[in-house]
Amino acid sequence: MAKVYTIHDIAIRLNISKSTVSRALRNHPDVSKDTKAAVFEMAEKLNYQKNILASNLASKSTNLIGVVIPEIARQHFFAQALSGIQKVAKEKGYIVMVCQSNEELQEEINQVRALVNSRVAGLLISLSKETDTFGHLQEALDRDIPVVLFDRGTDQIEVSQVTVDDYKGAFDITNHLIHEGYDNLAHLSGPMSLSISQKRYQGFIDALKSSGKNTAEAIVYQCDNLSLDACEAVDRLLSQKKKPDAVFCMSDYMAIQVIKHLKDRGIKIPEDMAVAGFAGDPITELMDPQISTVEQPAYDIGVQAAKRLIMEAESDDRETLGFINRVLPTAIIPRSSTVKKHSN
């Protein structure tokens, strides 16, 4: 049986590192033209291209990046983040494989294991709302596959993370509602298993505290199904003895659903109740009324996460490289769903 040549064989013959061979074969811009030419010449001489699958298995990785997200439908954020990931991957010679966990831990585990078995060079993951164990991520790390979390992170496992300042975004949008003169604020949170839900809730509470409001009386309703609990949440808000005059929603999609149900019940926005969201989805500008929101740099999150993952995947000394926890800023966009018409 003919010998199956690998990246290792090319590296030995050219007296260069395996990582340099790998980058050259991916046409990486960091590798000189002369080195690329030598690598491709040796690969052809060793009949490397005809044995690429076997050599991938032998060298333990491919030029694939695995991405696992909770969902893409109704999620402009993840569509934008994926665009950023794709841009960086293409520039660096990688191919992106995208999987959805559908907000289920078991599906996330299945997808991660499938990607690991496909010898991906690295994993980019935004955790599902059910994820409370991280053995599947540790399995990838144990097989020398770097993992970078984006958007939804955790402090339960030591990996690099790229997120936004969920706390400050929530704090700022709540302050906006207070400064507009709303007195009885409510918050519709996401599942508290998510770090983003915890941070946005804390930002809401701390903004109330800083304005001298009694947080013990704060109206908070947890929507475990994110957007799907909006109808029940509206019913609960309207059943309060002292109805809230403003509500900060965990997400833009939730805010859209809340506005729909409020309108169905004859509630005027913002005259009877103001509504704010979080994400910066462009659809919020097309709604009537336009929805105040917290803008997230979704595209940049994807770019930063992909750059970090590729840096770790191509590093010859990940231990020295260490891990990063990059937090990107948010910005509030006040619109007519919360801004009162002040008289001159």
Rank of each mutant, 00 (worst) to 15 (best):
Met1Phe: 03
Ile7Gln: 15
His8Val: 09
Thr20Pro: 07
Ser22Asn: 10
Val31Ser: 09
Lys33Trp: 06
Ala43Gly: 08
Ser59Asp: 10
Lys60Met: 14
Ser61Cys: 08
Thr62Ala: 11
Thr62Phe: 10
Pro70Ala: 02
Ile72Phe: 04
Ala73Arg: 12
Gln75Gly: 02
Ala79Phe: 08
Gly84Leu: 07
Ile85Tyr: 05
Glu91Ile: 12
Val96Thr: 14
Val96Ala: 10
Cys99Tyr: 05
Glu107Tyr: 01
Val112Pro: 02
Ala121Asn: 13
Ile125Gln: 03
Ser126Asp: 02
Ser128Thr: 05
Glu130Ala: 09
His136Ser: 02
Glu139Gln: 12
Asp144Ile: 06
Val147Thr: 07
Arg152Leu: 03
Thr154Pro: 04
Glu158Ala: 07
Ser160Phe: 13
Asp165Pro: 03
Ala170Thr: 01
His179Met: 07
Ser193Arg: 03
Ile196Trp: 01
Gly203Gln: 02
Phe204Gly: 07
Lys209Thr: 14
Ala216Glu: 15
Ala216Asp: 15
Ile219Lys: 12
Asp235His: 13
Leu238Ile: 10
Lys243Glu: 10
Asp245Val: 03
Phe248Pro: 02
Met250Asn: 12
Ser251Ala: 15
Ser251Lys: 11
Lys260Asn: 13
Asp264Leu: 14
Arg265Glu: 10
Lys268Gln: 12
Lys268Thr: 11
Pro270Gly: 14
Ala274Cys: 03
Ala279Pro: 00
Thr284Gly: 08
Leu286Asn: 08
Pro289His: 05
Val294Asp: 02
Ala298Glu: 08
Tyr299Val: 04
Asp300Gly: 00
Val303Lys: 13
Glu314Val: 00
Leu321Trp: 01
Ile324Glu: 12
Arg326Trp: 13
Val327Trp: 01
Leu328Tyr: 04
Arg335Asp: 09
Ser336Pro: 01
